[in-house]
Simulated scan of single mutants.
Amino acid sequence: MTNSGTDMRHHKKPIISPLRYPGGKASLYTRLRAIVRANELTSGTYVEPYAGGAGAALGLLVTGQVRRIVINDLDQAIYAFWKAAIREPREISRMIQKADLTVAEWSRQKDIYLNGPRDDYLSLGFATFFLNRTNRSGVLNGGPIGGMDQTGKYKIDARFNRETLVERLRLISLYSKKITITNTDGLNIIKRYSKRENTLIYADPPYFEKAGSLYLNSFEHAHHSSLANCLNGAGEAKWLLTYDNVPTVAELYPDRRREIFSLNYSAHRVTKANEIMVFSDSLVVA
């Protein structure tokens, strides 16, 4: 195991995703780009089984580092947003431009998010996006920026720059034919794509610590074990995995190469945490 202590804060990265994610991995763009090139995958497919904000995936696609990307998320609401972004970019952009950035509208969108029909992907997708951009740190089960009484230092519209967000959606729409959106268990995606050549899988599952406060679909130990069995059994595939740096990772991946790196988190307060990367045997680590 190596302990490089690599600090990812200063690497330039393209910001393409319209979603905010605590500890989002768009900051790993430079490292992932190097890995893609070292493994000669620039004409290949990049897969995120636990995509969330998909910041790294979109960065790699838009800058021409990979030819196609797969964005998968088990959360129906997150999937609905990506489906809307790919299929109805103009409509969801119109909704962004006309959105009423008030606590009353926040309450209405939260009700849609919690109780609205799950098959209305445009309505559910926009409600998910609205809460992500107006909630503290983008946490979907959190409260609005500035509080319900809007007495905080920042207000509910602090992270809702309409022009910037619409431009990001426009850019994504230009690459829509190169983006596959799926809504299934991450293990299904790993099993499907691990058998394909010219493919890089980057697994960023819910973490061990504080996962319940950051993700709606948090993992139990059995899920972590199942993921480890799946990845450890995919020896010929090119994959990497990131986790919070806890002893369990070494227990689950004792024979895989591992490397510690630093990442900034913005949930509740900005903190710097050590995380860990795990690499498949066949991956050239750059």
Rank of each mutant, 00 (worst) to 15 (best):
I112C: 07
R133E: 11
R118D: 13
G116I: 03
V103G: 05
Y113I: 06
S107I: 02
G125V: 06
G116W: 11
A127I: 06
W106N: 01
D100F: 00
P117Q: 11
R118Q: 14
S123C: 01
N115K: 15
Q109V: 03
S107M: 15
A127S: 14
A104F: 12
Y121V: 15
T134Q: 01
L114A: 10
N132C: 03
I112G: 03
Y121H: 14
N115Y: 12
Q109W: 07
D111C: 07
D111F: 10
F126C: 01
Y113V: 07
F129P: 11
F130D: 12
T134A: 02
W106Y: 15
I112W: 03
Y113R: 08
L101V: 12
T134V: 09
Y113C: 09
R108E: 11
A127Y: 03
G125Q: 03
R133W: 12
A104L: 14
E105I: 01
N135Y: 04
R118V: 09
L114K: 12
L131V: 03
R133H: 11
W106M: 02
G125K: 13
D119Q: 07
S123L: 06
R118W: 04
G116C: 07
R118L: 15
D111M: 08
L101E: 02
D119E: 14
F129A: 10
D111S: 12
R133I: 07
Y113W: 15
L131R: 01
T128P: 04
N135A: 01
L114C: 04
A104K: 14
N135Q: 12
K110R: 15
G125A: 11
L124F: 10
I112H: 06
D120C: 08
E105M: 13
F130A: 07
